[in-house]
Write a protein that binds this DNA or RNA. Sequence first.
DNA 1: TAAGTCACG
DNA 2: ACGTACGTGACTTAT
Length: 720
Amino acid sequence: MDRRARLARRRGIKGAAGENLRKALDWLPTGRKLITVACDCDLAEHIAGWPALDALALREVDREALRGFYQRYGFRSWLRELEDALGVAPSEAPVSTRSTSTGTAAQPDAPPPLPAAPLAREYETITTFERLEAWLQVIGTAGLVGLDTETDSLDPMRARIVGISFAVEPGKAAYVPLAHSYGDAPEQLPMYEVLSRLKPWLEDGSRAKVGQNIKYDLHVFANHGLHVKGYQHDTMLQSYVIEAHKSHGLESLAERHLGRKGLSYEDLCGKGQHQIPFAQVDVARATEYSGEDSEMTVQVHRTLWPQVEADAGLKFVYANIEMPVAQILCRVERTGVLIDGAVLARQSHELAERMVALEQEAYSIAGQPFNMGSPKQIGDILFTKLGLPVKKKTATGAPSTDEEVLQELAADYPLPARILEHRSLAKLKGTYTDKLPLMVNPATGRVHTNYAQAVAVTGRLSSNDPNLQNIPIRTPEGRRVREAFIAPPGHVIVSADYSQIELRIMAHISEDEGLLKAFAEGIDVHRATASEVFGVPVPEVSSEQRRYAKVINFGLIYGMGAFGLASNLGIEQKAAKDYIDKYFARFAGVKRYMDETRIRAKEQGYVETVFGRRLWLPEINSGNGPRRAGAERQAINAPMQGTAADLIKLAMIAVQAELDRSGRSTRMVMQVHDELVLEVPEAELDWAKQAIPALMAGVAALKVPLLAELGVGRNWDEAH
DNA sequence: TAAGTCACG
DNA sequence: ACGTACGTGACTTAT
């Protein structure tokens, strides 16, 4: 599945069944209805009366009713498919409105829906140098230009330009097709010549540009040797700081903020198996699509930027954090990281041998072969054939075979331990040692992850294709994967991470005396916690007590209750409650912070980080108990996780600025939430050891000192 | 495409 | 009676 579809699925836009249907309603733009069909399932009965939902609920699959529904809402391809299956004549082309205005009250935080006024459109296809020069005049003198690229790949490092569009005012745009290739594609201007003429404008930092997801376009232009400057705005990042919990694709933004439903990428290229490359899209249609994209980007900017600008906190986060970070991330991604494929291949081989041995043992214990990768088959063997006790069930009611369950069963039976070990080896092999080498870019010989800057609602980055933020470390075998993350000859890997960043932030926000004191004096915070909770002097805290205190501290950051703490420590809920009560008695400031945060969240509907990043919590006043409780936990956690995210982004900006200022060859290669990984020439190592932790600690003056610790090695494992 | 599982901070 | 500790991404199996 491609990234687009995965992200859409995660946001609950597609496959609107059950839980996802509810999510989809949460994401729904103001004044819109969700159209859905539910057939032959319990869902059908439930959804019929939901507000903001126009639903066709069928107990049995009634294909004629379905056909009418598809016709009414213009689900063209499904309609065609259904009519094929029914063997009836295709119906007339339907009106293509997929959503209707309902006139329901707007959410308090959303602007009123705008009337979708018919827009006079003038999108020009540029195929002559005369017209190109005319447009160069226009964009060279405009205040702010919307800029968008069309490409042949979703992989930012491999994407090549197919066309470029510009927009400066509503309704007007130009598209320069450059690499459309299909049967009778029109003659297009030569790529190199066009890019050469655009280069002075593109690379002029004083010519203001706005884009949607500028990091992608920065990559695309860089792939053609162009280093674009002057991106002053990114509508995706504007949306992200205004309402991080909503979707930030241009289509969603245009619909939510402009009341416009433009051509979608799928309209042009289809999807799944039938998808065609953009280069095969008809130039006239591509002009409509791309012109609309750059034009809508300008329009969305005109709506969102005033909202960002009006709030000092949001403006700071946007202008001083997200916009600079976008450019830095582009550089980090282009740098990539060096992977030793031979090391991973060797590990894969070892893992495979151990897995085979485990399989043999497991088959003989079970008395038959079975697929150890299938939770279902494991369940059949364990619980049906061997009659082991079911410890817990999954969400769907099947007996669970997760780690916790197998761990428990392993005390009394031989098979679960084999399954557990096999699973952990299969994970290492399948996700890391086999896959990472395949992700090496042949052109650079390195692995280039993609950092998603507008996905995590708390302000964190996420990493994908491949995910370099979840490389194993907690077990010795897993950790070995990190031996393959190496530096080129003459360089070393340096890892610098913030120490106890979230607890320090908790101390800062809560102003709890005890916590502030512990950090000020540089005492191990888990020992300090244990000392208070167990009532023993700091030096006499046992390792067991410290371990408990550590779990309590983590739990607090997550908004945990007695149940969670008890199950985590394997103790009685009553005992867990005693610990929590004791903690709150000793750290009254933390207790006050938690209570006040819940109250503030309920009053204003959102919580904020120290720097003003905002997380909206639509369910904080929900009548649904568990949902509300979940939102309360988010309210507790988000300011800490989010402030930590702000701090490390500020650190990336500070580090990169210093690298540029002093002309170093050191390069940032990864970010892992509280850790920066750099590739450092040996000649710069002394400098890095001193400068990097100082820069990281110096990005903010909180009520506790920030501390960054640094490690050095030939590979990422040694650098820890 | 959904579910289950597990890797990280 | 309900669920129960935050935030992510990727892989495999089964439908």
